[in-house]
Every structure is written in structure tokens, then in C-alpha cells.
Design a protein around this nucleic acid. Structure first.
Length: 935
RNA sequence: GCCCGGAUGGUGGAAUUGGUAGACACGACGGACUUAAAAUCCGUUGGCCCGUAGGGCCGUGCGGGUUCAAGUCCCGCUCCGGGUACCA
């Protein structure tokens, strides 16, 4: 056999392992390049062909850069805390660590088959104490820091503390959780605390009181807040883990609940997270997702006084204070605290009923997606700040408690939802736009001209907006305001399999554990206690026990994955999460490859933590991933059989419409070219053992098919191990790239793999032959062979530089086809050819590199440079167009000037024939490209 | 609804700055080898038309436009995929 891939791949894998080929060290003489795959969660299901797609792409770049002389960091590890292992533990009693260990072993086995150039000596696992020690450490620093808005960066809480002792908090411009501060201050000094305290007040407090006030300033803080509670998982979830009212993992219902939780003040970094997007090379769509998630909007916060409730004010946020004259009612979220206060006795029953209704139905309602306008009048009125007119106060669920102030001023003429609400409840729609028919809907155009708006009448909205902000502020009932959609992130999980917090409680006050790392304790069951405390409350033995009790929550999945790219730089450091020296050398990730599904989770949180670590001076950059590529999903091709309803008889795809049938997925391993293996099908499941088939005329059972997501439940999974067994890892690597552009979703079709396999065989046959052995000769290559070589080097190099992985394979195929036709076996051609094959088919390339007499390993074979002179041809073949249509080809010497080409083409007999006596009006010669004759 | 992608042969796709549309590969068809099949090798393969040689016309989701020249740029649509949503 010429291409014995099994022997070749086993041999070189062994060789690399023995030589430690992929171990890298910092090397100041070389420029670095950092290629990283998104952190995998080692799931029990193993890999299907879609998973390695991104790993292959990144490995190719890593190998390419290494051959170009870069010092390449290309690590891999496991995000090994997480829900699936714990769910499994709940069901079986098996410790998640054991399941996780087993899954990692299986994962590694599959990865090893594919010939990746990972430096496994740098492997990290988030669930290992040596790793999560530093996750805990970062948490502790977040606890010890707040955000100084004036300085625009994180600052130690200790400085704040001394400031309070000297000056109180009146002059402090730090990010603060107002609700937490007011609640804490009220505890200390009673009702009437509005957020400011003096140095004397501060100094008079005991430690507990001071701690509760400081909590409002910490970046990691404990607070009572509305959280997403998932009863089925028994834990809270962050906003990005909830999709359409259900948990991202498992699809369980999620309800709002007020709970005391650890939170992360990511909102302090909102502007930096937004601005930082401009400097990084990510896809526009992911940047857009992050921008929307942060949701910055500017406008004004306006206060409306309430009739008959002196002192009560309703605050609203509006991006359009210029439309204030058109505001004629207010709408509060049903959960708004003033609802209970202002509702009149007459409306009380209706309001209570409405509030109850919304709280119970909102999740289902939002899932269903239909949203008729609903609402309820409170009986109360606010006063228009400009006219003093009474404005009815309504409640409605289209106003969200969690956004802005939970209240809006309704401008039915200028906002479509307000307009619909007014329509639904028969409220007036005051016209404030010139020439706009309010019966048709709201007017949201920015260039509309205002009317009935006092001094602002006649101005466009764009002109009126800054004036409105200025004048309402001067009038004393508004302030300019920037509002964000981004909320602080919940950081507690009521689960077992996660990082324990380095926190204990003393008199109910949370404190950092001193002097020792808190390890995840053993528990007798992975379930909440009878009192509803998280599983860690079951622990009878902790390795550290300080204060009255330990923290029972664990950290969320994104904790460990927010900084892992730093640990790879210095994985065994026991003094620091990563030395500054190493992070200065390796720096940002130069290429990050992974799915696009982490836009609002991991990719935002790791940017947040990176900025924090940067503020602390621990690293020298504040964006983790300089460039990112998101690979598309590989889709599976599912096969179907059609069972006649109520029978055990199956009809073919062609006959399915003649009967009432049920469509059932069948395992694609039983189907070849859409024809079902009947015996295999009968043996598949007991219920099919006596299945009857109505076959087509040719005696075959033809299945239906559809392209859909690759998943176990659809029986359309293609497993990389099987394909490696049949074709080899090099073929699989090349084929996954050959499928199409990395970013695009594409269906998997195993049939096509033979073409790529043939290509590698053909490649081999230039070097080796079954009968004659090594064919490589030292004869000087022909100009033609050199041209093919240099053309291929050029194309492959340029395509890799623009991350066009798929076209590289085609370019190599074309080169090989040409050299095969020429019968080229010249060492001078074959050696560089093996070098440029190496990133794609590293095992075969090693073999061929050695065969062609290359020195050392192909992994370090210098990347060849193309020589432009070798590309030059003596003759150039011009397509000749007449009025844009190609009529013939003209061969001319390639050094002819454009005017000489023009005379040559005009003299050509075929030109005269085409022109048929007409005089050409214009002749365009694009040198080396095309000739177009107009006339 | 909004935002972001995308639409090219039977299929996956190529065409990088406007310059020969369909590279490369799969599949299909025809042939060689073979008792036969598999494997392998060779040839044909966007559609329509002129019997052939050679040509001609049409053709990159649809309708317009700019240009000597448009898959590529502009305007207006249709459909498909993904994300997101009462965000004030």
C-alpha cells in the first residue's frame, strides 16, 4: 500500500510524543503567536465531526505560524465544572469528579487521534484545586475593590474606607448600588437616609454597620435582588443563561424571585466594554450582540409629582424628553413600589388582580410571544411638570420593572407601544408633530417637526432634544441620564459542582477566609438541604472552617472560563495566577476560534475580568482576544422511514404520500445512499423485529432525508473516530476544511471525503510508489514544475493569511494534479511541497518530508517563500471581449506594452471578422487580464 | 418587529481590488480492466439551440440602475438561516 495512513499516523504520533515536539517555552528571541480554542466542557457524549472543526482550523494556523518562525502558544484544557456532571451525580450518586475524569479521558483520546499540536504540559482544568485557587483569588480581589468613576478604574475598598472616616461619602464618585446603600443606611440610621453620610456618622458605626455600607461599593457584592430562579435545576441563573424564559441548559422554566446573592458589578465597566469593541477584530454580529446587551441609551430622568400625595414623585427615564409636551399619562411596571401607595381604594381590587395576574402568567406569556396590550388604571394622577395638567397613572406589563426606573411617561404620538396602549384603552393622543396623522400610528422619525410644544414648536426633534435636556434640568425636574440595559451579573449558584467561595460569615457579615484555600467539601447528597440551603450546607467537614459558617453557594460556570487564557501562559505557578513576565511575553490571544453562542456570556465576562486584572496591574492589556473567528455549525443529514399509522408496515419515501404515515428517524449507520439495510433496521429495536416493508420496484427501501442539527436524538451523528479509522486523521483534517468557509453552517456529507483521501494518495505517489519505492530524484526541475510549486506556495500562504482554510486544500489539489501530469519527482519541488502540506496533514507531511530528505521534523520545516520570477510566463493569454462578450483568446508575449497589445489585437484576423467592417470606438487593455473592444 | 448573515450547476463550494462565472471535489453518466463485482484508471457533465466540426443564445434569488465590463457597486423587493425582543 502506497499510503498506509494507519502506520504513518501511529508512527509520527509516537515520535512527537517522545520528542516533546509540541512543548513550548518563552523565548525572547522569537516573536510570539497565541492561538486558542474556546474552552471545551468535557461532555459525556464525546465528540462528533462538528466539534473538531474549529480545533483543526486553529491547529492549522498554529502550525503555519510555527513554520514561519513564530513561538506559538497553542494550549488546550477543560472547563470541567458544570451542570451535566452534577445532574448525573444527582441521578446516580456518582461523584461529579469521577464522571468528569472519565469524560476528560474519553475527550483526550479522541483529540489525540486528530494530531493536534497542543502543548499538553500546559493543560488546565477549572475543577482542579490548583486552578480554582486562583479563581477564588480573583473573586477575593473583586470583593476588595470597587470602581472609582473619577479615576475610571477599579480601586481598593480600603482607600474608600479611609476616605469615609475623614470625609463621609458625599464627595465620593464611585459606582454604588443605591438600593443596597439605602437599605444598609436605613438599618444604621433609620428611615430618611437618602444615600449620604458624614465622617462622624461613619466613625460611630460598628464593624457590621460599616461592612453593610461598604457592600454597596464592592465589585463582588452580596445583595437582595430579583434573580432568575430555576426550580428544576434548584439554582439561580444569570440573564445570559435564560433564553425565552427557560434555562439554557435543559430548557426548564425560570421564575423571578428575590434572593440574597453574590453579584458582580459588571455595570461599572459598561462603557469600557462598549468602547473596547472598537479596537478588537471580531465579527460585526458578535460586536453588535454585545452592544445590544450593554444597551447604552442617553436621555433624561424626569420627575413627576403625584396629585394628592405630596412628596411622592415618580421618576421616569426617557430618551425623548423633546416629546414631553405630548406626554399625557404615565405607566408603571406592576411591581413598581409606588403602585401600592398611589392606587385609590376604588381601583384597588382591579389593580391587585392585575398585578397578581401578570406575576403568574408573565413567563408563559413571553414564551408564547403574543402580546396583546394589557393594563389597569390606578385611579391616581401625576402632574405634568410643564403644564400642571393631571396625567392618569396606569400600570401595564409592557413596562419592565428591571429597566430604567420601571416607569415611563407615555407619549402616544411618539412611541408605538404608548400609541397602542392609548388606542387599547381609549386615551387621548395629543398631536405634537407637524403634518403627522396620529390616527395612523406613532411618529418616530428624528427629523419630524414638533408642534403644540411651547417654545420647542417648529424645531426638529434633533434640534429640540439637547434643548429639552438642558431646559428640563434648569427647570429643576430632570437630569441628563445615561441608562444601560446591562444588569449586574448573579454570581452565586445553589449547586455543588463549582468553585466554593473563599468566604465565611462572622455575625452574619461575610469575610474573606484567611490563610488557606477553601476546598470543595464532600457531601452525602448533591441536593439542597431540607431547609432549602444549597448542597454545600450538607458538608460536615470543611478543610477550613472560619467564622460562624462557610458560604454555601458555589460560583457559576463562567468564573473559571473568564481568565483561563492567562493560566495557560504560566500553568504551574503557585505564587500567582500568572506572572507578569509571562503575560507580558505571550500577551493577548492573537487568534481565538470558537462558536458564536457565547456572545453575551463568556465573551463578555472574560472581557470584564481582563479589564479588572488590568486595573490591578496584573496584566498589561485590557482586552483578552485580539482577533476572533466563529466557526459555523456542521449540520447532519438525517434519514427517515415512513410507518403506516397504526401498523408495523413501512413504505418508502416515494410511496409515503399514498398512506397516512408517521416519519421516524433512523440511524444513519443503517442507511447507504438513502437505501435502508432492512436486517439492520429489524435488529435495531425489538419493536421493529417483525416490521413489514413495501419496497420499490428495484427491491430497495428508499429513505427520506433532511439536513438538520447533528444530535444523538436525531440519529445523524458522524463520529470522528470511525472516519479516522477508515481514512486517517490527515484526511479528516483536510476534509473538514475543504467543506467550505469556516464561518458558514454546512451539511456534513461523508461521501465527499473520498475525494480528499484520493488527493493525499496522489500526493504520496509523487514521492513513493508501491513497486519502485522512493521516486524522489535530484534532477533539476522544469520551469513549468517550478511555476506550479511557486504558484501553490503563493496561493497557500496568501489564503492562510486571510484565514481562508477551504481554498488552501483546493490549491494543493491543483498543484498535485499538475505535478502528477508532468511526472515531477524532483527533490527541489517535493521538499517545499511537503512543508506546506504539514499544517493540514501533519502525519503524512512528516513521512514525505523525511522521504524527500528533509532535515529535522516537518513541524519545524521553514515555510517556503515564493519567487515572483518563477511565476512569470513568456506568453500571456488574453480573453478578447467585444462589447463585453468573450469571443476568442489571444496569445501575446508577456512583456508587450498595453499599446502594443492593442495593435496586436486590432491586427488579428478574428478581430476584423468580429468587427465586420465597423470601426472600434474604444479599446480597453487591462494588462495581464483582459481586452475589451467596444464598437 | 429590529439587528446580523446568506441565496452561484444534481451537491459542497471557487471567483481576494469590478476584468474569461462554475476552479477544486462529490454525485451522475459513458468507457477500460475483470468470468463478475468491488477497487482502480480514462472521458463527459450549467441550460437551450444549430444533425457534426465549430458556433450561437440564455444563465450567479427577483426587478431596475451605474459601467467598456457586474456574482462583485447602487436603488427597490422576495425567500432562507442566525441572534434578539414589550429596553421607554
Amino acid at each position: 500500500m502506497e499510503y498506509d495512513f494507519k502506520a504513518i499516523e501511529a508512527k509520527w504520533r509516537q515520535h512527537w510524543k517522545q520528542q516533546g515536539t509540541y512543548t513550548v517555552q518563552e523565548d525572547g528571541d522569537k516573536e510570539k503567536f497565541y492561538v486558542l480554542d474556546m474552552f471545551p466542557y468535557p461532555s459525556g457524549a464525546g465528540l462528533h465531526v462538528g466539534h473538531p472543526l474549529g480545533y483543526i482550523a486553529s491547529d492549522i494556523i498554529a502550525r503555519y505560524k510555527r513554520q514561519q518562525g513564530y513561538n506559538v502558544l497553542h494550549p488546550q484544557g477543560y472547563d470541567s465544572f458544570g451542570l451535566p456532571a452534577e445532574q448525573y451525580a444527582i441521578q446516580t450518586g456518582q461523584h461529579p469528579a469521577i464522571t468528569t475524569e472519565r469524560n476528560i479521558a474519553r475527550y483526550r483520546e479522541q483529540l489525540d487521534l486528530l494530531g493536534f499540536s497542543y502543548d499538553w504540559s500546559r493543560e488546565v482544568r477549572t475543577s482542579s484545586p490548583e486552578y480554582y485557587r486562583w479563581t477564588q483569588w480573583i473573586f477575593a480581589r473583586l470583593f476588595e475593590h470597587g470602581y472609582d468613576r473619577g479615576a475610571g478604574q477599579s480601586s481598593p475598598i480600603s482607600t474608600l474606607k479611609s476616605h469615609f472616616a475623614g470625609h463621609g461619602n458625599a464627595t465620593v464618585d464611585w459606582e454604588v448600588g443605591m438600593d443596597t446603600l439605602i437599605a444598609a443606611g436605613t438599618q444604621c440610621w433609620g428611615d430618611g437616609f437618602e444615600g449620604h453620610f458624614t465622617a462622624d456618622q461613619w466613625n460611630a458605626l460598628d464593624e457590621k454597620g460599616q461592612a453593610s455600607l461598604l457592600m454597596a461599593y464592592r465589585l463582588a457584592y452580596l445583595a437582595d435582588s430579583e434573580v432568575n430562579w430555576c426550580p428544576a435545576l434548584g439554582t439561580v441563573l444569570a440573564n445570559d443563561e435564560v433564553i425565552g424564559g427557560r434555562s439554557e441548559r435543559g430548557g426548564h422554566p425560570v421564575v423571578r424571585k428575590k434572593m440574597r446573592q453574590w453579584m458582580m458589578r459588571i455595570t461599572a465597566f459598561a462603557d469600557r466594554l462598549l468602547d473596547g469593541l472598537d479596537g478588537i477584530d471580531w465579527s460585526d454580529s458578535i460586536k453588535e450582540v454585545q452592544r445590544n446587551w450593554i444597551g447604552k441609551s442617553t436621555g433624561a430622568q424626569l420627575r413627576f409629582s403625584v396629585q394628592d400625595h405630596p412628596g411622592q414623585e415618580i421618576e421616569v427615564f426617557s430618551t425623548r424628553p423633546d416629546t414631553l409636551h405630548g406626554a399625557n399619562f404615565l405607566v408603571l411596571a406592576p411591581e413598581h413600589e409606588l403602585v401600592q401607595i398611589v392606587t385609590t381604594p376604588k381601583e384597588r381590587a382591579a389593580v391587585d388582580a392585575y398585578c397578581h395576574e401578570t406575576s403568574s402568567r408573565s413567563e408563559r406569556e413571553r414564551m408564547a410571544g403574543d402580546r396583546g396590550m394589557s393594563g389597569c388604571f390606578t385611579g391616581a394622577h401625576a402632574l405634568h411638570p410643564l403644564t400642571g395638567e393631571p396625567m392618569p397613572i396606569w400600570i401595564a406589563d409592557y413596562v419592565l420593572a428591571g429597566y430604567g426606573t420601571g416607569a415611563v411617561m407615555a407619549v402616544p404620538a411618539g412611541d408605538q407601544r404608548d400609541w397602542e396602549f392609548a388606542q387599547a384603552f381609549g386615551l387621548d393622543i395629543p398631536a405634537i408633530f407637524e403634518g403627522h396623522d396620529i390616527a395612523e400610528g406613532a411618529c418616530t422619525e428624528k427629523d419630524a417637526i414638533l408642534c403644540n410644544s411651547g417654545d420647542w414648536s417648529g424645531l426638529s426633534c434633533e434640534e429640540a432634544l439637547p434643548r429639552a435636556i438642558r431646559e428640563t434640568e434648569a427647570a429643576g425636574f430632570a437630569q441628563p441620564r445615561v441608562n444601560y440595559r446591562l444588569r449586574d451579573a448573579v454570581f452565586s449558584r445553589q449547586r455543588y459542582w463549582g468553585e466554593p467561595f473563599p468566604i465565611c460569615y462572622v455575625n452574619g457579615v461575610p469575610q474573606l477566609v484567611e490563610g488557606a484555600q477553601v476546598l470543595l467539601p464532600e457531601v452525602d447528597a448533591y441536593l439542597p438541604t431540607e431547609d432549602g440551603d444549597p448542597p454545600l450546607a450538607r458538608a460536615e467537614k470543611w478543610n477550613v472552617l472560619q467564622g460562624d459558617r462557610m458560604e454555601f453557594n458555589t460560583m457559576p460556570g463562567w468564573a473559571g472560563s473568564s481568565w483561563y487564557f492567562l493560566r495557560y501562559m504560566d500553568p504551574h505557578n503557585s505564587d500567582a495566577l500568572c506572572s507578569r513576565e509571562k503575560s507580558d511575553y505571550w500577551g493577548q490571544v492573537d487568534l481565538y476560534v470558537g462558536g458564536a453562542e457565547h456572545g453575551t456570556g463568556h465573551l463578555l465576562y472574560s472581557r470584564f475580568w481582563t479589564k479588572f486584572l488590568f486595573d490591578l496591574g496584573l496584566i498589561g492589556f485590557d482586552e483578552p482576544f485580539a482577533k476572533m473567528v466563529n466557526q459555523g455549525m456542521i449540520l447532519g443529514r438525517s434519514s427517515f422511514v415512513y410507518r403506516v399509522e397504526g401498523t408495523n408496515t413501512f413504505v418508502t419515501f416515494e410511496q409515503r404520500k399514498a398512506h397516512r404515515t408517521q416519519r421516524l428517524h433512523v440511524d444513519i449507520s443503517m442507511v447507504r445512499n438513502d437505501i435502508l439495510d432492512l436486517d439492520a433496521f429489524k435488529a435495531w429495536r425489538p419493536e421493529f423485529a417483525d416490521a413489514q416493508f413495501e419496497l420499490n420496484e428495484d427491491g430497495a427501501y428508499r429513505c427520506g432525508s433532511e439536513v438538520e442539527k447533528m444530535s444523538k436524538s436525531k440519529y445523524n451523528v458522524e463520529n470522528p473516530d470511525d472516519l479516522v479509522e477508515r481514512f486517517g486523521a490527515d484526511t479528516l483534517r483536510c476534509y473538514e476544511m475543504f467543506l467550505g468557509p469556516l464561518e458558514q453552517a454546512k451539511p456534513w456529507d461523508t461521501q465527499g471525503i473520498s475525494g480528499v483521501h484520493n488527493f493525499l494518495r496522489k500526493f504520496t505517489r509523487l514521492y513513493l510508489n508501491g513497486e519502485e519505492g522512493v521516486l524522489v530524484t535530484d534532477t533539476p526541475p522544469s520551469a513549468e514544475a517550478l511555476r506550479t510549486l511557486h504558484k501553490t506556495i503563493k496561493k497557500v500562504t496568501e489564503d492562510l493569511d486571510r484565514l481562508s482554510w477551504n481554498t488552501v486544500v483546493s490549491a494543493l489539489m491543483i498543484g498535485i494534479n499538475e505535478l502528477t501530469e508532468m511526472g515531477c519527482h524532483d527533490r527541489e519541488v517535493l521538499q517545499p511541497l511537503a512543508a506546506i502540506l504539514s499544517p493540514y496533514a501533519p502525519h503524512l507531511a512528516e513521512e514525505l518530508w523525511a522521504t524527500a530528505g528533509g532535515a529535522g521534523s516537518a513541524v519545524d520545516a521553514p515555510w517556503p517563500k515564493w519567487d515572483p520570477e518563477k511565476l512569470v510566463e513568456a506568453e500571456v493569454r488574453y480573453p478578447v471581449q467585444f462589447n463585453g462578450k468573450v469571443r476568442f483568446q489571444l496569445e501575446v508575449a508577456s512583456d508587450l506594452s498595453p499599446s502594443d497589445v492593442e495593435s496586436a489585437v486590432l491586427e488579428d484576423a478574428r478581430t476584423l471578422k468580429q468587427l465586420d467592417g465597423r470601426a472600434p470606438r474604444k479599446v480597453i487593455v487591462v494588462p495581464g487580464r483582459i481586452i475589451n473592444i467596444v464598437g
